[in-house]
C-alpha cells in the first residue's frame, strides 16, 4: 500500500517518476552507463546488439530502394546547420563546436583560467568553429544532392549520428543518438508515396517486434512564439507522422520513428531539381534506433535471453 500512497497525484510528476524509474533500472542492469549528464550514456554491448538488429531489419525493409547507403559522422559543416534554417527554428537544440584555433588566441590566459578557482572559465577563451553537431541524420546529405535528379527521383539510405541539446531524465530523450533514415528526393507525388509507404513498413516492422505502436499526426518542437505558428502549419498539413510506442511512461508514448514531408524546404535551399526542372521535394523516414531498443527493453524486459525466440531471431540476438 505504501507505493500507492506515495504515487504522485500530478500526472506530469508521475511521468517524471516513471522516466527516472526506468532510467535507474537500465543503469542498474548496466545496459546503459551514466556519464553524470542527463541524456548522455555509455552503451553496453547488449544494448548495441539490439541496435544492430534493428538497423539490419530497417535495411531489409528498404532493400532495393536506395541508390546508395551512406554513413555520417556526428559533426557536419556549421554552414549546413545554417542553411537548413535550424538555428531559427530550434536554437535551443543546437550545438556548435568551439575551438582554440584562432592564431591570435592567448594560451597564457587560457592556462590561467584553467588553473583558477573557476576552472570552467577556460572555455570562455574558445571560439565557435566551422563545425556543428549534426541536427538530423539527413541534413548533411542535401549539399551532396545539388543538381538534377534522375527522372524517377532518388532514395538514399543514411546512418547518422545526431545531437539535440535537451537534457532530460527520460532515457528515451538522449542528447547523443542515432537515426537510420531512408530519404527520398524527387517530385511531390513521389515524396508523399515514399512517406506513406514507410509509415506502413514501420508499423509492420515494429509490430513484428511485439511493440504496441500507432501512427499519429505530430509536429516538431519549434522554438518560441514563432515556433507555435510553424508547429500549427506542420500539423494542419500533416507533414509529420510519428510512430509512437510506450517506453518509460505508458500514458505518454514516445516517438520511435517519424516519417516527414519537407516539401521544397531543402530542395530550394540546396539547389536540388527534378529531371523536369522543378525544385525537388524531399521526404524522409527516420528510425530512432536507441528509442526502439528502449521500447523493446521496456516491453520484453531487461534480460534479452528471456525474449520471445521469434523476436530474438528477427533481431539476430
Amino acid at each position: 500500500m505504501t507505493t500507492l500512497t506515495n504515487r504522485p497525484a500530478d500526472p506530469a510528476e508521475l511521468v517524471l517518476e516513471q522516466h527516472r524509474a526506468f532510467r535507474d533500472e537500465l543503469l542498474a542492469a548496466r545496459l546503459l552507463l551514466s556519464t553524470g549528464i542527463d541524456g548522455l550514456y555509455l552503451r553496453s554491448d547488449r544494448f548495441e546488439r539490439i541496435v544492430r538488429g534493428i538497423d539490419a531489419m530497417v535495411s531489409r525493409a528498404g532493400a532495393g530502394t536506395a541508390e546508395e547507403t551512406l554513413h555520417f559522422p556526428l559533426l557536419m559543416p556549421r554552414e549546413v546547420l545554417e542553411r537548413t534554417n535550424y538555428p531559427r527554428s530550434f536554437p535551443n537544440l543546437t550545438g556548435v563546436v568551439s575551438g582554440f584555433s584562432d592564431p591570435t588566441a592567448d594560451h597564457a590566459a587560457l592556462v590561467q583560467a584553467f588553473d583558477s578557482d573557476d576552472r570552467a572559465s577556460w572555455t570562455n577563451l574558445l571560439r565557435p568553429s566551422d563545425l556543428a553537431l549534426c541536427s538530423a541524420a539527413c541534413h548533411p546529405l542535401y549539399p551532396t544532392q545539388q543538381g538534377t535528379l534522375p527522372a524517377e527521383g532518388r532514395v538514399v539510405e543514411v546512418f547518422g549520428q545526431c545531437f539535440r541539446r535537451e537534457p532530460s531524465i527520460d532515457p528515451a530523450r538522449m542528447q547523443s543518438f542515432r537515426q537510420h533514415e531512408f530519404v527520398y528526393l524527387g517530385n511531390a507525388e513521389g515524396a508523399r508515396a515514399h512517406r506513406d509507404a514507410w509509415i506502413g513498413r514501420a508499423l509492420e516492422l515494429h509490430g513484428r517486434l511485439g511493440l504496441s505502436v500507432e501512427a499519429v499526426n505530430a509536429n516538431d518542437p519549434f522554438f518560441g512564439r514563432t515556433g507555435r505558428l510553424l508547429a500549427a502549419s506542420q500539423l494542419s498539413n500533416s507533414l509529420k507522422i510519428e510512430v509512437v510506442a510506450p517506453i518509460a511512461a505508458p500514458s505518454a508514448p514516445t516517438a520511435i520513428t517519424s516519417a516527414n514531408l519537407h516539401l521544397e524546404h531543402f530542395g530550394e535551399e540546396f539547389g536540388i531539381h527534378t529531371a523536369t526542372g522543378q525544385v525537388a521535394h524531399t521526404a524522409c523516414v527516420g528510425f530512432g534506433v536507441e528509442r526502439i531498443a528502449l521500447a523493446l527493453l521496456r516491453r520484453h524486459g531487461l534480460d534479452l535471453t528471456g525474449w520471445d525466440p521469434q523476436i530474438r531471431q528477427e533481431l539476430a540476438l
Binding site: T226, S233, E264, H265
Partner: peptide, 11 residues
C-alpha cells in the same frame, strides 16, 4: 508563401 515566410510576415 511557405510556413517559414509566414513567420517573417507575423513578425
Amino acid at each position: 508563401m511557405t510556413s517559414h515566410a509566414s513567420v517573417n510576415v507575423m513578425i
